[in-house]
Design a protein around this nucleic acid. Sequence first.
RNA 1: GCCAGGGUGGGUGAGUGGCUAAAACCGACGGUCUGUAAAAUCGUUGCCCUGACGGGCUACGCAGGUUCGAAUCCUGCCCCUGGCACCA
Length: 412
Amino acid sequence: MTAQVSVDEQMRVLMRGVEYGDPNIQRTMEEDLRERLSLGKPLRVYCGFDPTSTDLTLGNMVPMLKMRQFQRLGHDVTFLIGTMTGLVGDPSDKTAARQMLTVEQVESNAQTWLRQVFRVLDPDKTTIERNGDWLASLTLAEVVQLASNFTVAQFLEHETFRNRMAEAKPLYIHEFIYALMQAYDAHHLKTDVQLGAVDQLFNIMAGRQLQRALGERPLIAVTTPLLKGTDGVLKMSKSVGNYVGLDEAPAEMYGKLMSIPDSLMPNYFTLLTEVPSEELAEIERGLAAKTLNPMEAKKRLARSVVALLYDDGQAEAAQAEFERVFQRREEPEEAQELPLALDQDGKASVDITLALSVAGVAGSRSEARRLLQQGGISIDGQPIKEAQVELAEGSLIRVGRHRFLRVVAADG
RNA sequence: GCCAGGGUGGGUGAGUGGCUAAAACCGACGGUCUGUAAAAUCGUUGCCCUGACGGGCUACGCAGGUUCGAAUCCUGCCCCUGGCACCA
């Protein structure tokens, strides 16, 4: 399999969209990768993810997609769940030490992840590992031995730590250990390539250093840019709320992708789709020359991402739904149900503010009232002003831009 | 253990006895516009009652206290951070 694709072609695919933040490192890694690919043997590739939250986002998908590319080229890919590293918490890119998680939290997060991983990766060709399996049993003597391969100065040079020192913020010993653990993972897995977001470069290079110190062949780091969130400004993250989850329904995912700033499109295309580079170039040219409607390009993007995570049919359906609901302002195909006790005519007179808060569409009755006052509520296309409304079975309540409720008869 | 600084709404962060449901900014939400983009613009942004005027309740780490009145003063406690001491 590997032999069928030329090294040049592999390099072209694998180096698409990578980012190192340092041209020297990039050059070295490219050379090393080319050299190792030319041996013609499948490479051992891994990428670790710390189960610190319940859902994976499109941000996590960027390195996952890179894993998939390796996988398709016939390399051995391991999805490593950081059951141990997740406990400690990665200090990279953090201004303060992260809260340590419990074993239970980590395990439960890991479980939900496994459901999501295979939307991107081929389950038959992916090895799943948990680093707790080997890290947990290390003895203190072994940890000390491991630590002896690194110097404090190396860590203090790391930007994250340096900044923290400069700002007189706490810096804990266990945060140093994090990089050691990752290094040990790389050694344990006898890895040829470690993938990760570019903010992981320090940790990944620690693995390279350890392997070299142990007389092993040092791994090649392949790092991807951090994906910007849907706001187009900050890094995509759950805590900021500017994220798209891998688990989200196609229509929702499609909609969120349509709401990203235009400027983000090239970035998303490169990092989240497998649209060939030549086509991307064409799209960018079209956008620059204004011969291509940005909305059309974005639809293509949204469709591509949904198709990658689901399938073409669902992507088409998501697009159709989007066009129907948001472009033509027609009714959605599916809506959350609002069960109401109806009279014999199939109608009910209710206080809409109460109904919305009970249904959880509005956080409180006050919030529902505000929505009403601001003209944010309509029933079957008619904006309403009064809280007391007549609803019938099948009535469609639209709240704000994109929340819908369909009235159904309550049981009993 | 000691010294110092600090704990305010989703976030940053004002406020040092009543004019404070708490400035400002950000975010978020809603309207107009529109391509669920950007920009613009108007508005909302603790909870509950009311059609509205208005009223009630809860809130500034926790628990008490002083006061007609406390986010603001006092006491105790908890937590965060830096430094020092102990270990050496």
